[in-house]
């Protein structure tokens, strides 16, 4: 133990033998190699494409001819493009509905499952609710498109058996939006549910016992104790779900083609149409950069607002 070590107030490390030192160096190197590899993948597949997209947004490029620099023209055009502006409104509406339902339904399911005493019952429900998340979104959307088809869908078939009229699930603006939200929530609520189950399972038992001794009922316990305690998880779920929902593509693309009209045309669909169908990669990149900025801004707002309601114990 050296005097300098004590003087600095730090813990004094035991002297290591050369073999131990070598082993630790190897372990350290291995750890950094792992971090380096994932960092490299993030650079190659996330940061570089973002940078390339940002650069491309200042060009006009049809993928075949050489790109032509156009300055901020794509951004100026974007602001006056009703289709793009409308797609942001549509996406925001769908995303807010999806996230709210994911949080409410996910929480309700988690609370109900947590109340089951038998562990195998809890396990069974966890599996059932998580299962849709494992299905391919594209395949599930095709399947749901058939189920909700106005003409030959199963849903309308059973409604007809009950003497009810056909519902234009995918051929009216309201119906299509509602169906898209329903399908998106059905498929992704398992993620939120699992997060909430984990959070509710890790609540401190002594606090809950104290609340019970004070005579609080289940509703009061949930809203006054459990919810504040798991508020960091709710916040995390809301941030992640909103980012995902703002990038909604598969369900509207496959089930409604963005229609009727443009009522379910999301911003990612507009990006796809602009870049890959209309061969305007520069303009498509500009739209994607604006979506990127909107997502950052929305996440920033969520973090600011979170200061008022998220409780970190």
């Amino acid at each position: 133990m050296s005097a300098s070590g004590l003087a600095m107030g730090g813990a004094v490390r035991p002297r290591l033998r050369p073999l131990q030192r070598a082993r630790r160096r190897r372990e350290g190197a291995f750890g950094y190699a792992m971090i380096g590899a994932s960092f490299a993948l993030i650079i190659v597949f996330t940061l570089l494409p973002i940078a390339a997209s940002l650069g491309l947004s200042f060009f006009s490029w049809d993928i075949i001819s050489p790109p032509r620099f156009v300055g901020t023209e794509n951004y100026e055009r974007l602001a006056a493009d009703n289709h793009v502006v409308n797609s942001f409104v549509v996406t925001l509406g769908l995303a807010v509905a999806i996230v709210l339902l994911q949080l409410v339904i996910g929480m309700a399911l988690a609370v109900l499952v947590q109340q089951r005493r038998r562990s195998w019952v809890r396990g069974l429900f966890r599996t059932i609710y998580y299962l849709p998340l494992l299905a391919s979104t594209a395949a599930a959307s095709v399947f749901m498109g058939y189920i909700f088809n106005e003409r030959f869908g199963v849903v309308n078939y059973y409604l007809a058996l009950l003497g009810l009229p056909d519902v234009p699930w995918l051929t009216s603006s309201t119906g299509a939006s509602a169906t898209i939200v329903m399908v998106a929530v059905w498929q992704s609520v398992g993620f939120t549910f699992v997060l909430f189950v984990a959070a509710l399972s890790s609540l401190p038992r002594d606090v809950l016992e104290a609340v019970a001794l004070d005579g609080a009922g289940p509703v009061r316990t949930f809203f006054s104790v459990k919810l504040p305690l798991i508020s960091p998880t709710v916040f995390f779920a809301s941030v992640v779900n909103l980012i995902n929902a703002m990038q909604l593509f598969d369900q509207p693309f496959i089930m409604t083609s963005g229609g009727p009209g443009t009522s379910t045309t999301t911003t990612t669909m507009i990006i796809y149409q602009t870049a890959f169908q209309n061969l305007q990669f520069g303009y498509g990149s500009a739209i994607s950069m604006v979506l990127f900025a909107v997502l950052i801004a929305m996440t920033g707002v969520q973090f600011l607002v979170a200061r008022r309601w998220v409780f970190y114990s």
């Binding site: 190197a29 950094y32 190699a33 380096g36 590899a37 960092f39 490299a40 993948l41 650079i43 190659v44």
Partner: peptide, 12 residues
């Protein structure tokens, strides 16, 4: 560290 990062980049 640079070696490790370089290896990762090279692999990618």
């Amino acid at each position: 560290l640079l070696k490790a990062g370089g290896t990762g980049l090279a692999m990618a």
